[in-house]
Design a protein around this nucleic acid. Structure first.
Lengths: 190, 190, 190, 190
DNA sequence: CGTTAATCGAGACGGTACGTCTCGTCTTAAA
DNA sequence: TTTAAGACGAGACGTACCGTCTCGATTAACG
């Protein structure tokens, strides 16, 4: 087990910090998330945090990327509609009902005030997530279910955009019926 | 004109605070927006601010509602597609390129951490805006251009959701082509 | 009673700080005297301390000057030898056995590292104390007990210097016999 | 030349530390004298310092004892007055104008807060220095210039005490005239 | 002549206190 | 009664050093 020394940072401290940040965000909310609080909860010195992370949002981002790296991968049953409904439902649950989603919302919110964070969130998460969101569409296009000239990027945005809008902006519930209608109508207009 | 005296609050002070908050947000960003800074810029005592507003986000919300109350009303040319393209383009410009949009993004971001603010933003702005967003669809439905059984709420979310998603989450540009395709395909799938 | 407001600082807070600093120095020693500790003991915010005192030594100096302003005034019995013995004995007790003397020793020590503090200690205490130390000599000179041409400054230094030397440097005890011999021999060599 | 190995400490590192401590004290003052700074300046690891010295004042004390061991030995011309004037002048220069004196003042100051350091300073320096201060007096006593019953300890304190008092406490200049008068009057009152 | 044990430079660690910043509360005198 | 002014208690900020620790490299007496 590593401890702090010349050969690198303490993995133990790193994980304790990430977990503490995650827990505190979920328990107390973003406003109560302080570097001092994270340090205390993680049993770590403040300086250790500042040595490795520029700010508390960078901690959150790393925690989010570590935890949520493999989530939200769409299924592949061969049935485009079913795969999309399943995937969009998973995205909705993630955004509105999961701890990781709470961290994501906090990061997206801070990204409005912090372009550097927004850029990292895009480069290290959203790009990959958008690629995953396209997967069912690409497979359908290859199967001939979608026309070859369909603009999959736009299509993907039309599918997930309304979910993020409801989850992050209006706060409306995302019902099964809404998702079903969204998928059906969007594919009808592809 | 009222000044600080026994006859009630100073309208002059109120406007100075709202304008100072607005200006500081646009100039320095949300992180640099402090009650002390607003008070100093407005030439007003901190206590005057605390007497009338519970927090700095309430100032911003009031400033936003005062300034932007009448913006983003869709046109009525009788041509649904044209009206929607015009309206969605206006929303995009508002979100990505206007001072009022910057305030809105800040409020939406803080709303992620602050349910009370989120509720006020929804009750005092988003509800009205969503009603405005539905207007072209309602008129078209009345004209018979949209089926009587069309779910206009869902339709509106499918139109504006992708715009908010790009503006607030992914940061992708919202091009004329994107808006045109969004309107065309969404109406096709209605 | 004053509290913090536009019309001046809080006398209550000022006195609490001075007393806390004094007490902590005597109880825990200079090394354990921290601004944070003073603030906590005094029930005062750190910022209130930094608003009014540049450093913890300035607090100590003010506490010392407030407390010890009237101490160490030599008696006037008309008997030079007796007055000097009494006065030098009082100085010795002050330096080695009093709380105020502990504060003085701490200030004198810090003055070695801090010229600004040393200058203030000289200007606001030592100058006055040296004047008091000369009083018995001046009276004796007026009475004709000391030659008119005697250099009283040098004489005073020769009387008190050995006391400070023993108290601050060598740590040797200052006995009654030492004081008596010091006074007798010094007057003999005047 | 020794280096770090099982058979003993590195003399090279020891000297580098002592010199770095000395230099930093003179250059930056006691407040800026940190173990980290000494380690960096000496090109030595912090642990190497903590392995051999309990604190930074112990480093200073060792540096002082190493450098200044043989200074301040009074001359022996056979003329008591001349020897004393020469010796007291050397002490004054040491205290007020030499690098070693700066280190001594720092150690004496810290000794006010640190009894263990004060004890070591007395045992390892002041005792020896006081013995040297007595030498001219002892020789004079043997020569019959001073009465056999003269208390040489008190006499020595009456000679050097005023110098330390001026140098460490009041900051007054120690002039040739002051030294001359001090020696003449003290011997007159012996 | 390789083994081995102590020291070395390096630097991460858990801590404490620093001096600064902003919060939201309060008290006052003037208008 | 409200205002501008500004001191107050509170507490987080990010930094500097503290003294401890672990590491791999170095070195010289011992086996």
């Amino acid at each position: 087990m590593h401890r702090g020394n010349r050969h690198g940072r303490s993995e133990q401290a790193r994980l304790a910090v990430l977990e503490a940040a995650d827990d505190l965000l979920v328990e107390k909310g973003f406003a109560a998330l302080t570097v001092e609080g994270i340090a205390q909860r993680a049993g770590v010195a403040k300086q250790t945090i500042y040595r490795w992370w520029p700010s508390k949002t960078d901690i959150l981002l790393e925690a989010f990327l570590t935890d949520a790296a493999e989530e939200l991968t769409p299924p592949d049953t061969g049935d485009l509609t079913r795969d999309l409904v399943t995937h969009l439902t998973a995205i909705s649950r993630f955004l509105t009902a999961s701890d990781a989603g709470a961290v994501f919302r906090a990061l997206a919110a801070e990204g409005q005030h912090n372009p550097r964070l927004a850029a990292r969130l895009r480069a290290e998460h959203l790009t990959h997530q958008r690629a995953r969101d396209r997967q069912p569409l690409e497979r359908a296009q290859r199967r001939g279910e979608l026309p070859a000239e369909a603009d999959l990027d736009t299509l993907a945005d039309r599918l997930v955009g309304p979910l993020y809008y409801r989850a992050l902006v209006t706060g409306q519930q995302i019902t099964e019926a809404f998702v079903a209608q969204l998928v059906r109508a969007t594919l009808a207009g592809a």
